[in-house]
Design a binder for these strands. Structure first.
Lengths: 192, 192
DNA sequence: GTCTATAAACCGATAGAC
DNA sequence: GTCTATCGGTTTATAGAC
């Protein structure tokens, strides 16, 4: 019995559409159609309209993806295998969705970085949280704090670059390639 | 005497606006205002309208950025210093523009990857061309062809991830950090 | 909370004179 | 090649009944 509220459907549709098409190209009308909801419902739950909805989409999608990455990292025998599994899993997801689903926030982040400081900050918070989560695990594996953080930043940069490359070229191989590179970087940090 | 034609102004404005705001958020009206041109002029030079203009913007911006990267790589004493100079230069440009100007095509590429196959292919061609240019130089420095290409793909992924991270967090340090990582990866490939 | 109807502005694109 | 004027459609957001 999976009863979904109108609010849940609105947020869910918005998250998917923003992820795949970006902020500007996704219309309120389209979100309402996919959600099978009325216009007034959206403004009831999100008085600020499209902007409020996007802020919630960024926060919740960021948190969900973080939980996924954390579970992958934590179920691997060591951080090397962990980061590699993250990239391999990302590659499989991208392929399975026909190159539609990659990073949940990257397209919106790229669009609004110069034009909407509130949404930009929400995206920055998500990235920071992802970096913290990864850095914490690298430290736990014996990497020094400063190096662990830099490694975590590189992890996210490589993942984002891989997502973009895979989507544009319709080829998940670069993402898997990035995973092996990241694995080597983590290994080098553990040895030193 | 730098006389600019209407066509040049249209393309120039479009390139800047698409780079900073993306495709969907940039209106024809805004492009015309910045270009100080009439609506009919745009459709005279670009019968396909916004779509044609974007295709030209992607191609010309891609070629121009490639020429810049090539000149930086070619004026460095070796590929290690070359890739590092690319990231340091990118970081300086991002900072100098107040975090507005990063990759000329990434925002548009991310937006249209799922929704416009013609523009997606134009972006894919740009990335391929950048990768070829970098791979060629790694080969010339002694890296085996297959490894050189993989190194070049990693170069672009790390650059794109760095651009996004820098813009969203308003901090160019991750981009410089990525440069040192890339330098180490090139050095490791040269030693083997 | 949800319905229907609609306001008010803006969108990309085009017509026709010059 | 460029001007002015404008078309038809869509956009975000709101009003008022229920």
């Amino acid at each position: 019995m999976t009863s979904t509220t109108t609010r849940e459907r609105l947020l869910g549709s918005a998250r998917t559409l923003f992820q795949r098409q970006g902020f500007a190209a996704t219309g309120i009308k389209q979100i309402l159609e996919v959600s099978d909801a009325a216009s007034a419902s959206l403004y009831h739950f999100y008085p600020g309209g499209k902007h409020d909805l996007a802020a919630d989409a960024i926060r919740t999608s960021g948190a969900e993806y973080q939980a996924l990455v954390e579970s992958v990292l934590d179920s691997a025998p060591d951080p090397c295998a962990g980061v590699r599994a993250c990239f391999d899993g990302a590659a499989s997801t991208v392929e399975a969705s026909g190159y539609q689903d990659a990073c949940p926030i990257a397209t919106v982040a790229s669009e609004i970085a110069n034009t909407d400081d509130e949404l930009r900050q929400a995206c920055a918070d998500v990235f920071d949280s992802w970096i913290d989560a990864a850095a914490k695990r690298f430290r736990a594996a014996g990497v020094k704090p400063a190096a662990a953080r830099e490694l975590a930043v590189t992890f996210i940069m490589l993942l984002e670059g891989g997502f973009l490359m895979a989507r544009v070229r319709r080829d998940a191989a670069p993402l898997r390639r990035a995973g092996r590179t990241m694995e080597a970087l983590v290994r080098a940090s553990l040895d030193s």
